[in-house]
């Protein structure tokens, strides 16, 4: 960064955003997962590196007010120095119908991947599988992606676009299935379409929530039912400590700061103190 640029840049303090999206990443690199990293690497291949650093700063300050993914397009609103926030658009190539159909067939033939997707796991293997079929959900080069910002900066990406890319990258860390949306089809629709191709696996019907109504006969009004006596409770410690954290994972939506990470585990450990004498 040259002295001139520094001079030019310092007075530009963007307007504060009350409820902007604050990046989880507090320092260093962005991108927690493979998908997130790949997404960001696209941006970082461009020459405007000073815009990247500013974009990161914007992302961390919460200048991205909001973003929305719809049919192959990410639209975002980023607060800069002007009163009116800038409009950003990042468009990806939507997959044509043919590509989607090929994708359905690939997944339908691979029950492991189908099951993993049902379990909302986005694996590297899945990406490999698609690659082998000549498909990539993520844009492979800057040519696959078009960006646009309403700010006066000639650079593309400008810091606003960069900030949006970083924030979207974190969203992909949290939920890589947004990629489907970016390519023009929601993940739910995708899975439903795959299901149609799987033999025997008829579409799952809505499971009705079980309801147990109170017993209104006078006999039961004041009395507990027959099963009450045999219902046992135990005071015991967990079979697997922190099992639910192990299953669900620490929520990715929490800021990745030292003070926050580890707090949940601590809360679960404190719960164990709740044993009566």
């Amino acid at each position: 960064m040259s002295y001139w640029e520094w001079q030019h840049y310092t007075p530009v303090v963007p307007k504060d955003v009350k409820d902007g999206i604050k990046a989880k990443s507090r320092q260093g690199d962005f991108g927690e997962t493979a998908v997130g990293k790949q997404w960001i690497s696209l941006l970082e291949r461009t020459p405007w590196s000073n815009r990247l650093a500013r974009g990161k700063r914007y992302a961390r300050m919460g200048q991205v007010r909001d973003f929305n993914i719809d049919k192959g397009e990410v639209s975002a609103s980023v607060q800069g120095t002007r009163a009116k926030p800038y409009k950003i658009r990042i468009s990806l190539k939507s997959f044509p119908k043919k590509t989607w159909e090929r994708l359905y067939r690939i997944v339908a033939k691979n029950p492991l991947h189908y099951a993993a997707l049902k379990a909302r796991k986005f694996t590297d293997d899945f990406q490999e599988l698609l690659k082998a079929g000549g498909i990539s959900l993520l844009p492979e080069s800057t040519r696959d992606i078009k960006t646009d910002c309403s700010c006066p900066d000639q650079a593309n990406p400008c810091k606003h676009i960069a900030a949006t890319v970083y924030i979207v990258g974190e969203a992909l860390d949290e939920n890589p299935f947004l990629l489907f949306q970016m390519r023009g089809l929601s993940f739910e629709d995708f899975i439903n379409n795959v299901e149609k191709l799987i033999p025997h696996a008829c579409s799952e019907e809505e499971v009705q929530q079980k309801v147990i109504h109170p017993d209104l006969t006078p006999k039961r009004f004041w009395k507990a039912g027959a099963e009450f006596e045999k219902t046992k409770t135990f005071r015991r410690s967990p079979d697997v400590p922190l099992a639910l954290i192990k299953l669900l994972g620490i929520p990715k939506f929490l800021p990745r700061t030292k003070s926050v990470q580890g707090q949940l585990e601590r809360a679960y450990e404190l719960a164990l103190k709740n044993k009566p004498s």
Binding site: K210, P214, D215, R220, F221, A224, F228, K230
Partner: peptide
């Protein structure tokens, strides 16, 4: 489910959603 099935009904006899016998029937112990 065991507890829901054996709930003494009087325990929820003053439950706010319950204003009459019919609403009582609809309550979900589970």
């Amino acid at each position: 489910e065991q507890l829901a099935r054996s709930l003494p009904t009087a325990l929820i006899g003053g439950y706010p959603g319950i204003s009459a016998g019919n609403a009582f029937k609809q309550a979900d112990c589970l």
